[in-house]
């Protein structure tokens, strides 16, 4: 189910280096992500997809172009406003989890809500609900070091959902996971997709792309292919 545009980029560019060795990590990209869409951006390492994600999430500022989240232009915001916006409206999931090692799973998940000024009771309740949703209610009091890679990533996903973000942005979320843990994360993304969560995932793992509503192929900083997933599948038509 998709609706009005939540995330938009216009002429987005990110250049590195000087005149002699200019790298166009992101090269005049236009993008519209409607509410409720799960979008996968695929491409080989170095194609600019992570940079694109950082620009979309306000973690980096573009050399040129605009980024809009809902009806607010974010690339020109002050650092302070941007930090608040990331905390209140965006959820991030990274390849290497980025959990706080000295906090338990539930403390990691509730942290953002506490920083946003929510009462400890409410924050804890929501964090427990989210951990339950990612299948880790019984691991709430464990430190990250006592969790497997797949469990850590699920905690990170619960954390990303804690502020009911407009968009969840994920950078290679299965990059550090084995096959079984990848399947758990894929299931979770599939559940989020079905629940109508807007998702942007950059990845070179085609299994993630395979469960997205839309797949964009990226090469040398630009989009080269943009496919909406066909509605229903036919698993066994035609021989390979």
């Amino acid at each position: 189910m998709t609706g009005s545009t939540v995330l938009q980029a216009r002429g987005l560019s990110m250049l590195y280096g000087g005149e002699r060795a200019l790298v166009r990590a992101v090269d005049e990209v236009d993008l519209n992500v409607p509410a409720g869409q799960s979008l996968a951006v695929m491409g080989p390492s170095g194609c600019g997809k992570s940079t694109l994600l950082y620009l979309l999430g306000g973690l980096q500022r573009p050399t040129d172009g605009e980024v809009w989240l809902a009806d607010r232009r974010i690339d020109t915001m002050s650092e302070r406003a941007l930090a608040r916006l990331r905390r209140d409206s965006l959820g991030f999931v990274f390849q290497s989890f980025h959990l706080m090692d000295e906090l338990t799973a539930v403390e990691n998940v509730e942290l953002a809500a506490l920083l946003a000024g929510q009462s400890p009771g409410r924050a804890r309740k929501r964090a427990m609900y989210l951990l339950d949703r990612v299948g880790l209610a019984d691991r709430a009091r464990h430190l990250p070091s006592a969790l497997s890679g797949g469990q850590r990533q699920r905690v990170a996903i619960a954390r990303a959902l804690s502020n009911e973000p407009l968009v969840v942005l994920a950078d290679e979320p299965t990059g550090n996971l084995d096959s079984a843990a990848t399947l758990d994360v894929l299931r979770l993304f599939e559940e989020l997709r079905t629940a109508g969560q807007t998702l942007v995932v950059v990845t070179h793992d085609p299994r993630i792309a395979a469960v997205a509503d839309r797949v964009i192929a990226m090469r040398d900083g630009a989009f080269v292919d943009d496919v909406a997933s066909a509605a229903t599948g036919t698993l066994y038509d035609g021989r390979r």
Partner: peptide, 12 residues
């Protein structure tokens, strides 16, 4: 990708 999507969704 289309075939992978069908197979992957079934596998989930």
């Amino acid at each position: 990708l289309r075939r992978l999507r069908d197979a992957q969704r079934a596998a989930l």
